[in-house]
Design a protein around this nucleic acid. Structure first.
Lengths: 90, 90
DNA sequence: TTATATTTGTCCGTATGTATG
DNA sequence: ACATACATACGGACAAATATA
């Protein structure tokens, strides 16, 4: 989870760059199912963005079913990987 | 430690108003070194803000080396007063 | 040791205001 | 108007440290 540089002037907005970065990390196997992603606070520090931007990135992965989020705990890698309907079982 | 009124619509955000208030109290001598500041809960009641806002105010003073915080206990006035490098010895 | 209360630490959910392109 | 981003704020939940009984 080294912080790749985010380019605020790239055509891709920062939140998508971060999302792509996290997805790559998961696909690479650097983050296994049920393992926690960096917290929102850590993402803001890793990428130098505001919390809302970090949240937007996580929302992308959540919408794709790649992660699930537990309020007050954090976000975790989903078991399947955005294959089925995007839902995470227990 | 009377609760000065916080103006949510002032240019200064509430957490900075509270920080300034606490700093003034310390500079005034109303709080001596190693004496405890109001707890976060008390600050929320004194100023009518959320806990995160009270914490943000304390973080300002901590960053300035004016106070030190002990987990599970509270925050205390630092000995020097943000003069040196901002650290608190034993 | 266990239980309880207080306090700080961490975290997410949500909302508003401002600014830029 | 819209998408994006930052700063700030309120709220709720749970964990960890501390203190006391």
């Amino acid at each position: 989870m080294a912080a790749r540089e985010i380019d605020p002037r790239a055509p891709e907005p920062p939140y998508r760059q971060i999302a792509a970065d996290l997805i790559a990390e998961i696909e690479r196997g650097g983050l296994l199912p049920d393992q926690p992603l960096p917290s929102e606070k850590e993402l803001t520090e890793l990428y130098g963005v505001a919390r809302n931007t970090a949240r937007a990135a996580l929302a992308v992965l959540r919408d794709q079913g790649r992660i699930y989020t537990v309020s007050g705990r954090g976000s975790y890698v989903a078991k399947q990987g955005a294959s089925e309907d995007g839902r995470q079982g227990g």
